[in-house]
Protein backbone atom coordinates (compact mmCIF):
# COMPACT_ATOMS: atom_id res chain seq x y z
CA UNK A 1 0.00 0.00 0.00
CA UNK A 2 2.91 2.35 0.77
CA UNK A 3 4.35 1.71 -2.68
CA UNK A 4 0.96 2.28 -4.30
CA UNK A 5 0.59 5.56 -2.39
CA UNK A 6 4.01 6.76 -3.52
CA UNK A 7 3.20 5.79 -7.11
CA UNK A 8 -0.12 7.65 -7.06
CA UNK A 9 1.44 10.71 -5.43
CA UNK A 10 4.18 10.80 -8.08
CA UNK A 11 1.54 10.56 -10.81
CA UNK A 12 -0.16 13.66 -9.43
CA UNK A 13 2.92 15.83 -9.18
CA UNK A 14 4.70 14.83 -12.41
CA UNK A 15 2.21 16.53 -14.72
CA UNK A 16 1.64 20.23 -15.23
CA UNK A 17 -2.13 20.29 -14.86
CA UNK A 18 -2.25 20.50 -11.08
CA UNK A 19 -0.27 23.70 -10.75
CA UNK A 20 -2.09 25.36 -13.65
CA UNK A 21 -5.36 24.65 -11.85
CA UNK A 22 -3.83 25.71 -8.54
CA UNK A 23 -2.71 29.05 -9.97
CA UNK A 24 -6.12 29.54 -11.61
CA UNK A 25 -7.84 28.83 -8.32
CA UNK A 26 -5.63 31.28 -6.41
CA UNK A 27 -6.29 34.06 -8.94
CA UNK A 28 -10.01 33.35 -9.19
CA UNK A 29 -10.54 33.19 -5.42
CA UNK A 30 -8.53 36.37 -4.78
CA UNK A 31 -10.62 38.13 -7.40
CA UNK A 32 -13.96 36.88 -6.00
CA UNK A 33 -13.01 37.62 -2.39
CA UNK A 34 -11.88 41.13 -3.29
CA UNK A 35 -15.07 41.91 -5.25
CA UNK A 36 -17.25 40.38 -2.56
CA UNK A 37 -15.52 42.24 0.25
CA UNK A 38 -16.02 45.48 -1.65
CA UNK A 39 -19.69 44.78 -2.46
CA UNK A 40 -20.69 43.54 0.97
CA UNK A 41 -19.11 46.42 2.84
CA UNK A 42 -20.70 48.95 0.50
CA UNK A 43 -24.15 47.38 0.84
CA UNK A 44 -24.63 44.20 2.88
CA UNK A 45 -27.86 43.40 1.02
CA UNK A 46 -26.34 43.81 -2.42
CA UNK A 47 -25.69 40.12 -2.92
CA UNK A 48 -29.36 39.35 -3.26
CA UNK A 49 -30.48 42.75 -4.41
CA UNK A 50 -31.29 41.56 -7.89
CA UNK A 51 -33.26 38.46 -6.90
CA UNK A 52 -36.94 39.21 -6.54
CA UNK A 53 -38.77 37.57 -3.66
CA UNK A 54 -35.56 36.88 -1.77
CA UNK A 55 -35.41 38.64 1.52
CA UNK A 56 -32.03 40.15 2.20
CA UNK A 57 -30.83 38.82 5.51
CA UNK A 58 -29.17 41.37 7.72
CA UNK A 59 -25.50 40.42 8.00
CA UNK A 60 -23.28 41.40 10.85
CA UNK A 61 -19.75 42.57 9.98
CA UNK A 62 -18.48 39.31 11.51
CA UNK A 63 -20.63 37.11 9.29
CA UNK A 64 -19.62 39.26 6.32
CA UNK A 65 -15.98 38.45 7.10
CA UNK A 66 -16.70 34.73 7.57
CA UNK A 67 -18.68 34.57 4.33
CA UNK A 68 -15.82 36.17 2.44
CA UNK A 69 -13.11 34.04 4.01
CA UNK A 70 -14.94 30.79 3.19
CA UNK A 71 -15.81 31.75 -0.39
CA UNK A 72 -13.38 29.09 -1.65
CA UNK A 73 -15.65 26.42 -0.19
CA UNK A 74 -18.78 28.07 -1.54
CA UNK A 75 -17.65 28.98 -5.04
CA UNK A 76 -14.15 27.61 -5.66
CA UNK A 77 -14.48 23.92 -4.81
CA UNK A 78 -14.76 23.04 -8.48
CA UNK A 79 -10.93 23.27 -8.76
CA UNK A 80 -10.05 20.49 -6.29
CA UNK A 81 -12.93 18.38 -7.65
CA UNK A 82 -11.54 18.63 -11.18
CA UNK A 83 -7.99 17.86 -10.02
CA UNK A 84 -9.23 14.78 -8.17
CA UNK A 85 -11.45 13.57 -11.00
CA UNK A 86 -8.75 14.06 -13.65
CA UNK A 87 -6.33 11.97 -11.60
CA UNK A 88 -8.59 9.02 -12.42
CA UNK A 89 -9.97 9.92 -15.85
CA UNK A 90 -6.50 10.60 -17.29
CA UNK A 91 -5.61 6.96 -16.56
CA UNK A 92 -8.34 5.94 -18.98
CA UNK A 93 -7.82 8.77 -21.44
CA UNK A 94 -4.11 8.01 -21.88
CA UNK A 95 -4.50 4.25 -21.33
CA UNK A 96 -2.06 4.36 -18.43
CA UNK A 97 -4.63 2.23 -16.59
CA UNK A 98 -2.93 -0.77 -18.25
CA UNK A 99 0.58 -0.25 -16.79
CA UNK A 100 -1.06 0.94 -13.56
CA UNK A 101 -2.93 -2.33 -13.07
CA UNK A 102 0.11 -4.31 -14.20
CA UNK A 103 2.09 -2.71 -11.38
CA UNK A 104 -0.77 -3.13 -8.88
CA UNK A 105 -3.29 -5.80 -9.89
CA UNK A 106 -5.31 -5.36 -6.67
CA UNK A 107 -7.80 -2.83 -7.94
CA UNK A 108 -9.19 -1.89 -4.53
CA UNK A 109 -5.66 -1.07 -3.33
CA UNK A 110 -5.14 1.03 -6.45
CA UNK A 111 -8.38 2.97 -5.87
CA UNK A 112 -7.69 3.48 -2.15
CA UNK A 113 -4.17 4.71 -2.92
CA UNK A 114 -5.52 7.12 -5.52
CA UNK A 115 -8.02 8.57 -3.03
CA UNK A 116 -5.58 8.78 -0.13
CA UNK A 117 -2.80 10.33 -2.21
CA UNK A 118 -5.23 12.99 -3.45
CA UNK A 119 -5.50 14.21 0.16
CA UNK A 120 -1.99 15.70 -0.12
CA UNK A 121 -2.85 17.62 -3.26
CA UNK A 122 -6.25 18.48 -1.77
CA UNK A 123 -4.59 20.03 1.26
CA UNK A 124 -2.43 22.13 -1.03
CA UNK A 125 -5.49 23.35 -2.94
CA UNK A 126 -7.27 23.96 0.36
CA UNK A 127 -4.41 26.01 1.77
CA UNK A 128 -3.70 28.01 -1.39
CA UNK A 129 -7.41 28.55 -2.12
CA UNK A 130 -8.16 29.66 1.43
CA UNK A 131 -5.06 31.81 1.83
CA UNK A 132 -5.72 33.68 -1.41
CA UNK A 133 -9.37 34.16 -0.44
CA UNK A 134 -8.57 35.39 3.07
CA UNK A 135 -5.63 37.48 1.88
CA UNK A 136 -7.56 39.35 -0.80
CA UNK A 137 -10.73 39.54 1.30
CA UNK A 138 -8.98 40.87 4.40
CA UNK A 139 -6.91 43.25 2.27
CA UNK A 140 -9.99 44.85 0.74
CA UNK A 141 -11.80 44.96 4.11
CA UNK A 142 -8.81 46.74 5.62
CA UNK A 143 -8.66 49.16 2.68
CA UNK A 144 -12.34 49.94 3.17
CA UNK A 145 -11.65 50.62 6.83
CA UNK A 146 -13.73 47.66 7.99
CA UNK A 147 -12.73 45.22 10.74
CA UNK A 148 -11.01 42.10 9.30
CA UNK A 149 -11.78 39.77 12.27
CA UNK A 150 -8.53 37.93 11.55
CA UNK A 151 -7.99 37.50 15.29
CA UNK A 152 -11.55 36.29 15.95
CA UNK A 153 -11.23 32.56 16.77
CA UNK A 154 -14.58 31.67 15.19
CA UNK A 155 -13.66 33.41 11.93
CA UNK A 156 -10.20 31.85 11.91
CA UNK A 157 -11.68 28.43 12.64
CA UNK A 158 -14.01 28.79 9.64
CA UNK A 159 -11.06 29.62 7.44
CA UNK A 160 -9.13 26.55 8.63
CA UNK A 161 -12.18 24.36 8.12
CA UNK A 162 -12.37 25.69 4.57
CA UNK A 163 -9.01 23.97 4.01
CA UNK A 164 -10.52 20.72 5.31
CA UNK A 165 -13.61 21.07 3.11
CA UNK A 166 -11.57 21.68 -0.04
CA UNK A 167 -9.42 18.64 0.78
CA UNK A 168 -12.48 16.41 1.09
CA UNK A 169 -13.73 17.83 -2.22
CA UNK A 170 -10.57 16.53 -3.92
CA UNK A 171 -11.34 13.01 -2.68
CA UNK A 172 -14.93 13.39 -3.92
CA UNK A 173 -13.42 14.25 -7.31
CA UNK A 174 -11.38 11.01 -7.40
CA UNK A 175 -14.53 9.04 -6.53
CA UNK A 176 -16.50 10.79 -9.24
CA UNK A 177 -13.76 10.18 -11.82
CA UNK A 178 -13.92 6.48 -11.00
CA UNK A 179 -17.66 6.47 -11.55
CA UNK A 180 -17.50 8.37 -14.82
CA UNK A 181 -14.21 7.83 -16.64
CA UNK A 182 -14.79 9.91 -19.75
CA UNK A 183 -12.67 13.01 -19.14
CA UNK A 184 -14.75 15.41 -21.22
CA UNK A 185 -18.00 14.14 -19.72
CA UNK A 186 -16.56 14.54 -16.21
CA UNK A 187 -15.52 18.15 -16.81
CA UNK A 188 -18.90 19.01 -18.33
CA UNK A 189 -20.87 17.30 -15.56
CA UNK A 190 -18.75 18.77 -12.74
CA UNK A 191 -18.96 22.30 -14.14
CA UNK A 192 -22.69 22.03 -14.86
CA UNK A 193 -23.50 20.53 -11.48
CA UNK A 194 -21.33 22.75 -9.29
CA UNK A 195 -21.89 26.02 -11.13
CA UNK A 196 -25.50 25.66 -12.19
CA UNK A 197 -27.54 22.67 -11.03
CA UNK A 198 -26.67 22.64 -7.35
CA UNK A 199 -26.96 26.43 -6.79
CA UNK A 200 -30.41 26.34 -8.39
CA UNK A 201 -31.44 23.27 -6.37
CA UNK A 202 -30.29 24.95 -3.18
CA UNK A 203 -31.98 28.24 -3.87
CA UNK A 204 -35.18 26.56 -5.06
CA UNK A 205 -35.00 23.99 -2.26
CA UNK A 206 -34.73 26.73 0.34
CA UNK A 207 -38.10 28.15 -0.69
CA UNK A 208 -40.20 25.23 0.52
CA UNK A 209 -40.33 23.48 3.89
CA UNK A 210 -40.39 19.97 2.40
CA UNK A 211 -37.32 20.47 0.26
CA UNK A 212 -35.35 22.56 2.76
CA UNK A 213 -34.24 19.49 4.72
CA UNK A 214 -33.08 17.70 1.59
CA UNK A 215 -31.10 20.57 0.14
CA UNK A 216 -28.88 20.56 3.23
CA UNK A 217 -27.57 17.19 2.11
CA UNK A 218 -26.48 18.34 -1.33
CA UNK A 219 -22.67 18.05 -1.63
CA UNK A 220 -22.11 21.81 -1.93
CA UNK A 221 -24.22 22.48 1.15
CA UNK A 222 -22.34 19.77 3.05
CA UNK A 223 -19.03 21.35 2.03
CA UNK A 224 -20.15 24.73 3.28
CA UNK A 225 -21.44 23.15 6.47
CA UNK A 226 -17.89 21.99 7.29
CA UNK A 227 -16.78 25.62 7.54
CA UNK A 228 -19.96 26.64 9.38
CA UNK A 229 -20.42 29.53 7.03
CA UNK A 230 -22.40 29.68 3.84
CA UNK A 231 -22.48 32.21 1.09
CA UNK A 232 -25.87 30.85 0.04
CA UNK A 233 -27.41 30.58 3.53
CA UNK A 234 -25.96 33.80 4.93
CA UNK A 235 -27.22 35.73 1.98
CA UNK A 236 -30.69 34.35 2.60
CA UNK A 237 -30.76 32.58 -0.76
CA UNK A 238 -30.76 29.02 0.57
CA UNK A 239 -31.60 26.96 3.62
CA UNK A 240 -29.44 26.61 6.73
CA UNK A 241 -26.58 24.21 7.21
CA UNK A 242 -25.71 20.97 8.92
CA UNK A 243 -23.11 21.06 11.69
CA UNK A 244 -19.40 20.88 10.78
CA UNK A 245 -19.11 17.19 11.60
CA UNK A 246 -22.32 16.30 9.81
CA UNK A 247 -21.17 18.22 6.76
CA UNK A 248 -17.81 16.44 6.85
CA UNK A 249 -19.50 13.04 7.12
CA UNK A 250 -21.99 13.79 4.35
CA UNK A 251 -19.34 15.08 1.91
CA UNK A 252 -16.99 12.20 2.67
CA UNK A 253 -20.02 9.92 2.24
CA UNK A 254 -20.39 11.18 -1.34
CA UNK A 255 -16.71 10.38 -1.99
CA UNK A 256 -17.07 6.86 -0.60
CA UNK A 257 -20.37 6.26 -2.40
CA UNK A 258 -18.90 7.32 -5.77
CA UNK A 259 -15.78 5.21 -5.15
CA UNK A 260 -17.73 2.08 -4.18
CA UNK A 261 -20.02 2.37 -7.19
CA UNK A 262 -16.96 3.03 -9.39
CA UNK A 263 -15.20 -0.02 -7.92
CA UNK A 264 -18.05 -2.39 -8.78
CA UNK A 265 -18.64 -0.88 -12.22
CA UNK A 266 -15.60 0.75 -13.90
CA UNK A 267 -12.96 -1.21 -12.02
CA UNK A 268 -14.70 -4.55 -12.38
CA UNK A 269 -14.72 -4.37 -16.13
CA UNK A 270 -12.17 -5.87 -18.49
CA UNK A 271 -9.38 -3.44 -19.30
CA UNK A 272 -9.04 -3.75 -23.06
Amino acid sequence: MTAALRTEYRKLVTTRLWWILLASMAAYMAFLAGIMAFALTQDPGSMTGGAPGVEAAPMTPESVARTIYTLATSLGYVFPVIVGALAMTSEFRHQTITPTLLAEPRRTVFLAAKMLSSVVVGLLFGIVGTVSTVGAGAGVLALMGEPTYLSDPIVVRSAWLSVVALTVWTVVGVGFGTLLTNQVAVIVVVLAFTQFVEPILRIAGGQFDWSEGMSKYLPGAAGEAITGSSFYADSGMAAGLLTSWQGFAVLLGYAVLFAVVGRVTTLRRDIT
Binding site: A3, A4, T7, K11, T15, S90, H94, Q95, T96, T98
Partner: peptide, 28 residues
Protein backbone atom coordinates in the same frame (compact mmCIF):
# COMPACT_ATOMS: atom_id res chain seq x y z
CA UNK B 1 6.77 -10.11 -15.11
CA UNK B 2 7.58 -7.22 -17.42
CA UNK B 3 4.83 -6.61 -19.94
CA UNK B 4 4.36 -4.03 -22.68
CA UNK B 5 0.96 -4.21 -24.30
CA UNK B 6 0.79 -1.08 -26.40
CA UNK B 7 3.27 1.62 -27.18
CA UNK B 8 0.93 4.47 -26.26
CA UNK B 9 0.39 3.98 -22.53
CA UNK B 10 2.05 7.21 -21.44
CA UNK B 11 0.75 10.44 -20.05
CA UNK B 12 1.89 12.84 -22.80
CA UNK B 13 2.81 15.51 -20.25
CA UNK B 14 5.09 13.28 -18.22
CA UNK B 15 8.80 13.02 -19.01
CA UNK B 16 10.39 9.68 -19.84
CA UNK B 17 12.21 9.63 -16.51
CA UNK B 18 9.09 10.60 -14.53
CA UNK B 19 7.14 7.89 -16.34
CA UNK B 20 9.55 5.32 -14.92
CA UNK B 21 9.73 7.06 -11.52
CA UNK B 22 5.96 6.72 -11.23
CA UNK B 23 6.19 2.92 -11.31
CA UNK B 24 9.52 2.70 -9.47
CA UNK B 25 8.00 2.36 -5.95
CA UNK B 26 5.86 -0.56 -7.07
CA UNK B 27 8.78 -2.22 -8.82
CA UNK B 28 10.78 -1.61 -5.65
Amino acid sequence: VGAALEAASFHPGRTALDHLRVYAPQAG
